[in-house]
Amino acid sequence: MTANLRETAARLLAEGTVQLVLGWERGTSPLRTTPLFARAPGDAERLVYDPTCDHNLSGYLGRLKEGRVALVARPCEARALVEQVRENRIARDRVLAIGLPCSGMISRRALASRLADRVIREGRLAGDRLVVAGDGWQEEFPWAEVRDPACQGCRLPDPGIYWLAPEASAPPEGDRFARLEARSLLSPERRREEFRQAAERCISCYACRQACPLCDCAECFTDRAAPALLGPTADPSEAMLFHLVRAMHLAGRCVDCGACARACPVGVDLRHLHLALEREGAERFDHRPGVDPAARPLVGSFRPEDREEFIL
């Protein structure tokens, strides 16, 4: 697959069909990849594609100056692209999405937890198996055991968004909302405690916001000075407000790629907030993000018959 991708990318660049191909190349640490901005046909040789490609590339599209670009797109990139097109953030004809089949990606957090946070010195994929080694130890197991939970029950985007659709995509099966089902048993006290702990851990580096392909407001509400919506303190309530407002702002737009949780340097994972809003959008308003570039926005639109049983 990688060979095919490189060849396609090199051809697109050589023919001048696009000025840039956005993909991944091998990173500097074990099992890491890093975004590649390929501008010359020769650069395409560095493209790689495997389950260690864990960063969502679509977020870069908005800042590219090139007129026409090719995006190496898994379902995550493609769903984000649907939303970007839907919101007129990207002109549809500027982006050729090269669709790739995806069976999920490795979660570095799941891997670290499986290895009890031992230091990984080497890591490689051999087919379906992951081989990792450190000081005096080596382990080998199917990489799917450390697949990102976000990949479970992946939704394929609208095929219409691809320029070159993936030949065969068999995303991991399962119920996307299973995580919420498990949470539905938690008491409100437990949920508050959980959220408070996450907020205390959060260092407000905004890696989640920056890694999100759809968190691309010209000015984030956190940066407002007049009125300042967040205070100058390190009180956990500031982080709580940030994460709640971010979740509201992504309601109906979040494509559940999990980039936010993977980007967090201190292990905060609040994807269930986004997922809860996605489920409410689907069940109550029949809205599914990342599918239809012509869909009306979830927040900001309405149907006269929207239920209002909660209103006094």
Partner: peptide, 16 residues
């Protein structure tokens, strides 16, 4: 009305 329906779900998730 929509915004509030969503906000209610969100607050529920964090135990408010």
């Amino acid at each position: 009305r929509r915004k509030f329906a969503l906000l209610k779900r969100l607050l529920e998730q964090v135990g408010i």
